[in-house]
Simulated assay, not measured.
Amino acid sequence: MPIRGCLLKCSISLGVAMNLPRRPGIKAYGWLSRLHVVARGSSRTRITNLNCCAPHPLREDIRQAVAHMGTAKLQNPPLIEVIFEIRWDLQEREDGVRFDPHAKIFPGRLSSALGEEYPVYEELPTSDIPDEISGYIVQHRFRRAKGSWPLVQVGPGIVTLNDIESYEWQDFQRRIEGVLDALFQEYPDTSLLATNEVVLRYLDAYPFDFEKENVAEFLSAKLGVQNQISPAFFEAIGVSPVPIGVDFKYSFPSQRPPGYLHVGFSRGRVKGRDSVIGETIVQSPETDGPRTKDEILSWVSEAHALTHTWFFTMIEGDLLEEFACRR
């Protein structure tokens, strides 16, 4: 079903993140560009012959199509990127520095294991970062072909799998399993491979004119997100109550899968257009998270189901009709 991510460890533009491949024409402002980023996508059902694209209440034919969104694809999805990320514990030296003792040799072994599917290697500029501060920063990238997606990235204590608009969940899920096979088979000392975080992130773009429209009203009317400030705050102070930007996130505990759901929105530009950038992240708990390959695959499957339900509930109405229509 449709779904979408990327977070940064320092204040740099989205697409230049330590673990986010550069994407032409995409720039984010605010919390999305300050966190450690990953993006998102989905497996979406093909909805055809709806004669939609006109503003009216969500019809039963679309509602029924959404209920079976497991095999095909939205015609006009908002997806920018989807990212699966896994991290494992770093070791600590006597001086307190945390490091991955196999950070130098593991990328080569991972490349050999994934070479048939991702034969093109890229050394990232971050590979020059000193070992003392390189933990959880991707430094190497493997692609299917030059400039193509999906791709795999690796660094000390971290591996990511990234895909963009063409993403389909069943294919992405298969690729996650392949990455996990390579990780658990090729990491030199599996006794040190204690996973501490698994993340599934989706990043979406909703074109929006911040100069002519009220983003708070858009979020409320189109996405069901209530985040407005009382007009009383603006009375007699000479400040317009219509925002020209947006930058916030919510975090919620999740039971299935165990962990957290993070949902945020910010202002950004995608393909030269101002947009509301939405990010949905499912993150495993700090302790007692999935450890084995089977546990991780089960957790990711539940994380995908959660984001799928969240996404379609959020866009139900005009946006779903827009995304379901062929342009």
Rank of each mutant, 00 (worst) to 15 (best):
G155W: 00
L151H: 12
I133A: 03
P156L: 06
Q139L: 04
I133Q: 03
L151S: 13
G135F: 00
G157D: 02
G147I: 06
L161A: 12
V152Y: 06
V159A: 05
E168A: 06
D128S: 10
Y167V: 11
E165A: 05
V159D: 04
D163P: 07
N162M: 12
P130F: 00
E168S: 05
I164R: 13
R144V: 11
S127Q: 10
G135T: 03
S148Y: 03
I137E: 04
R141Q: 15
E165R: 02
H140Y: 15
F142S: 10
I129E: 03
T126L: 12
R143H: 11
Q170G: 10
L151Y: 07
T160S: 09
V138Y: 00
Q173R: 14
G155V: 08
Q170R: 11
Q170Y: 05
T160M: 08
H140D: 14
D131H: 02
S166K: 07
R143V: 08
V154A: 14
T160Y: 09
T126S: 15
P150V: 08
Q170H: 12
I129W: 01
S134N: 09
I129F: 02
I164E: 12
E132H: 05
P130G: 01
E168W: 00
D171Y: 07
K146E: 14
I129R: 06
A145W: 00
S148C: 05
Q173F: 10
I164G: 02
Y136S: 01
S148R: 07
Q173K: 14
R144E: 09
I133G: 00
G147Y: 03
S127C: 13
Y167G: 11
S134G: 10
G157N: 01
G147R: 02
D128A: 10
W149Y: 14
R144K: 10
Q173H: 12
Q170I: 09
L161K: 10
L161I: 06
R141H: 07
